[in-house]
């Protein structure tokens, strides 16, 4: 893919960071359960690489906060860091892992990104944003238990989207032939 195309795909993913949470908004608590904003950021990293993933992870939540007031300013910094890590690690994963099977590459990169992001988010919360309030238990609860449906959905949905995009010839095949 050309750099122009990667830039525009990243722009669209940033826009989806605003739009997808609204689409999920009809569902109460959808934000913390389904984590809709994670999806475009992870996809951007997987498809365009770590630099673009980083940009999407930082700008996406900022734009969303700017346009819709979600996430609220109080949780924005922690969220930006978490999403930025997702974008970067997803991109690095796809750069370094080549198993000759798209779905394997996708799953490994995704799981890596989702784990690293949560660890970093927990660490930043404990050290910077909510000193003293964060314990292992609250971290595990909010990042793994509450959001378990979201994690499951992401693991099913994101590879499905990448494969659908390959089929629709909107992104090049990772392993042609």
């Amino acid at each position: 893919m050309t750099e122009v195309k990667k830039a525009i795909i990243t722009a669209v993913c940033m826009a989806l960071c605003v739009v997808l949470p609204l689409a999920f908004h009809a569902v109460p608590n959808a934000g913390s359960i389904y984590l809709p904003m994670h999806i475009p950021v992870l996809l951007c990293g997987l498809i365009c690489g770590w630099g673009y993933g980083l940009a999407c992870g930082i700008v996406g939540p900022l734009l969303s906060s700017l346009f819709t007031g979600m996430p609220p300013a109080a949780v924005l910094p922690a969220m930006v860091i978490e999403l930025a890590v997702y974008g970067v690690i997803a991109g690095l994963g796809m750069l370094l892992i080549r198993t000759k099977k798209v779905s394997a590459d996708l799953y490994i990169s995704l799981v890596l990104a989702m784990l690293t992001g949560r660890v970093v988010a927990g660490a930043t919360r404990a050290l910077i944003f909510a000193v003293g309030e964060t314990t292992m238990a609250t971290w595990a609860t909010s990042y793994f238990i509450t959001s378990l449906p979201g994690i499951v959905i992401q693991l099913i949905l994101i590879p499905a989207i990448v494969i659908a995009l390959e089929r629709a010839r909107l992104i090049p095949r990772r392993y042609p032939g």
Binding site: T2, A15, L16, L157, L165, L170
Partner: peptide, 25 residues
């Protein structure tokens, strides 16, 4: 109901991105 919602959203968003990038190039 998430799949039938999210997959088409991404497909049409990426289709638009594709058109715009092609036009810019």
């Amino acid at each position: 109901s998430i799949m039938p919602l999210v997959i088409p959203i991404f497909i049409s968003a990426f289709r638009r991105a594709d058109e715009l990038a092609t036009a810019m190039e």
